[in-house]
Design a protein around this nucleic acid. Structure first.
Lengths: 214, 214
DNA sequence: CCAAGTCTCACCCTTCGGGGTGAGGATGTG
DNA sequence: CACATCCTCACCCCGAAGGGTGAGACTTGG
């Protein structure tokens, strides 16, 4: 059987590197062909792994968009956050599975294969139940609210305020409000320094991405 | 003999990591007590290693300032660029030595010790003569001029235009001119994306710096 | 010598970012 | 319930960033 082609959408360097390392020994079964945080999936893939950012509302819409993408066969959510209502919501919106980031490599590969061949929705049980609820998203320790962390992450990806507003479906005024709050908490006053803070705290997506092998 | 205390001033992550690794096996003879790109030397050191940025004019002044710093006993230049006039200029301005970045660890340590104990100016011969002239500074391949690369590096360190002007002793208008040029060449239109470009191309100094051991 | 490129600076203009304030609604905790 | 904390948005203001143009001085290579 040919290897399953997987894209990782919307994630941070920490995760990207981890996934890359985890799947390196399974290249014959899984190929991560695209890693990109800022753009859509460009080449056709069997499964798109979507990283929901701290379970924001905007995710629902993004998941739907991914599913309607003709280049994507199936979409799974790949997240730390396993709260039941989030899982239900994602599956209800058409996700083919909901995979925990705490899954070891073997189980992750198995789950992806199950998603690929089967019609059932795949939700492996959490190997560390109740363990990863805290430390949910980068910046939690600094007291960033989920929204603040989200806009910070988007800033670290190089978006301007209007683009952030579009992406999050917020008004630009709200975006500014969150940015102000985030700056106060992380102790910066300029966007430049916010970006640097983000880079140093794992918000930086892998832009120098893996070159896909055809 | 107590270990020589060394500070590395004004350098990029690539170099910082390299130096750290190189000197790790010589901790009993050399201690790198401070690594910082943006600030002055804070604690007293025996030798400050100064990285001249592509041999800019501003360097002369900065070297003089370092030498006049009461917390710094001696200053050496640590650079890829070994052009004779630059070496002469640095030594003339009071540098106690001019060390090539292509020096292997052993010779580097020896050179630093020679600087520390002796009165002579130490200029080890280049182990790779004529080899490292190109690839001089990050961004050379992209066609950035030295000045453009310099302001980009300062942007990547979080400075605003006025601070860059102060640091480089340029007018703020010139700074803006170089920034425009740099943006054009690297293909960005915002400071945020310039910072991200810089981070991905080795301009990012080690801000999470080594904690000095007393 | 001329052309190209760089370095330096000034002036103008527009947009964007950053900060302050106020305010309503939702949610959750003592 | 009262209080705190978010989330959301609007309005105003100012300074910084970004972009265009022009121009003189200097260096270097053909």
């Amino acid at each position: 059987m040919a290897a399953i082609r997987v894209a990782l959408v919307n994630d941070y360097e920490v995760v990207v590197r981890g996934l890359e390392a985890m799947l390196r020994t399974y290249v014959d079964r899984i190929q991560v062909v695209e890693l990109d945080a800022s753009r859509d999936v460009a080449r056709s893939v069997d499964i798109a792994m979507y990283d929901t950012f701290a379970g924001q509302q905007g995710d629902r819409e993004e998941i739907r968009q991914l599913i309607s993408n003709p280049r994507v066969s199936k979409v799974v959510v790949y997240s730390w956050n396993l709260q039941p209502d989030l899982v239900r919501g994602a599956l209800h919106n058409g996700a083919a599975g909901y995979l925990s980031k705490s899954l070891p490599a073997g189980e992750l590969v198995a789950a992806l294969e199950a998603v690929h061949v089967g019609d059932e929705q795949v939700v492996p049980h959490d190997p560390h139940p109740g363990k990863v609820i805290t430390g949910d998203w980068p910046g939690r320790e600094e007291g960033l609210t989920p929204r603040e962390a989200e806009v910070l992450a988007l800033i670290t990806q190089g978006l301007n305020n209007q683009e952030i507003a579009d992406r999050t479906r917020l008004s630009i005024n709200s975006v500014k409000t969150y940015i102000r709050g985030a700056y106060r908490r992380i102790g910066v006053t300029t966007r430049t320094n916010a970006v640097l803070w983000g880079v140093e705290h794992g918000f930086h997506p892998d832009r120098a991405r893996m070159r896909p092998r055809e």
